Amino acid sequence: MPHLLRSSLWLGFFGLILVSWWMMITMSTSMGLDVLGRPDAMGEAMRRMDPRMDMKMPMAEFWPLAWMWAAMMAAMMLPTLVPTLRAYEDLIASANGTRAGFIGVILGYFAVWVGFALVLAGAQLALLFGGVIDMLGIAVSRWFAVALLLAAGLYQFTRAKEVCHGVCHSPSMYFLGHWKTGFGGGFRMGLGLGTFCVGCCWAFMALGFAGGVMNLAWMGLATFFMVLEKLPQIGHYLTKPMGALLIAGAAIVAAWPHLT
């Protein structure tokens, strides 16, 4: 029975990730975008729409945007939680961790990212009505894209990134220092881990505004890197090289405007 419960929880966890990706693919297709975020004729028409028009558009309303960002958080950030959940599983065997606590960690972690999704939805509306991005969430000015790439690249070298990444990179140490039992304890630890994870990865989410928030290629690459960055064996070797790549990307976009 314990093995059946363990398998069911893991299957449910990965099923949620797959459903989230399916939702993102469906939303991207419905907006007339291909996997690289390039619009077809319908997408171009939507891109040129004025958000101040009387016609109601989901991409110009808070709650549809919040739902989209929450699904994106599930698709992109839940895969990065796998090393953390493995660390918690070790404590189920060696300490007094429970399956209820396992669920609590997931829900606490995701609750923080849903909160961040609300912030991003508000930011997208502000940028849209400010004329900085278009209806598809793509930067109108290449200089805004340059600023995002540069900010994300520089952040990789900061002390804040180092501290937050240290927690995400070594979740076992966090659990040992903040250990609480049961569902409530797992939920509180999930909240803490989620907060550090937002501190570690917020810049990669903001980069969506550079090439389009529904760009599935960007979502996939960002998810892949964030998973690698949290792996105990290699994660700490990747942070600063990625920062250098992002800064180089900012320089390239600044020099060749046709890339945006």
Rank of each mutant, 00 (worst) to 15 (best):
G137V: 01
P171D: 06
V227C: 15
W67T: 01
G220F: 12
L9E: 04
A45W: 01
A87S: 15
G115S: 10
D34G: 07
W10P: 09
L207I: 05
L127K: 01
G243F: 12
A145S: 15
W113V: 06
M77C: 10
K161D: 12
A45T: 11
A87H: 00
T223H: 11
N215S: 12
H178D: 03
E229R: 08
I252Q: 04
I138S: 06
C200Q: 08
C168L: 11
M31H: 11
C201F: 03
G192C: 07
M205Y: 03
V19T: 06
G15I: 06
G184I: 00
V213Y: 12
A41D: 10
R38E: 09
L85C: 13
T181W: 03
F116P: 05
H258N: 04
H169M: 14
A151R: 05
L125Y: 02
Y174I: 00
A126N: 00
G249L: 02
L136S: 10
V227P: 06
F13I: 15
T239R: 09
G166C: 13
A70F: 08
F183K: 09
D34R: 01
A87L: 12
G97E: 09
S94I: 11
H236V: 10
T80F: 02
M55H: 07
Q156I: 07
S172C: 02
L9F: 14
F129H: 06
A100F: 03
W202E: 06
E44V: 00
V198W: 08
M173P: 06
V146A: 10
V146Q: 05
I25S: 00
A74S: 06
M72K: 02
D54L: 12
P2K: 13
A160D: 12
E162V: 07
I234Y: 12
A210Y: 05
P257R: 08
F204D: 03
A160M: 15
G115Y: 10
G37V: 09
L259Q: 03
A74E: 07
F187I: 05
F116E: 00
C201I: 06
W202L: 05
L148N: 00
T239W: 02
M24W: 00
D90A: 04
W67S: 01
G131H: 06
L245M: 13
P58N: 02
I17Q: 14
P64H: 02
G153K: 04
F225R: 04
L231H: 13
V167Y: 13
I103K: 03
L228W: 03
A152T: 07
L65Y: 08
G131S: 00
A70K: 01
M68F: 10
P171I: 08
E229H: 06
A41H: 09
D50Q: 10
R99D: 11
P171K: 11
A93K: 08
A45Q: 11
P171W: 14
M31K: 14
T195L: 15
R38F: 07
W63M: 08
L11N: 09
V253P: 05
L238Y: 07
V35M: 15
S20L: 03
I247F: 04
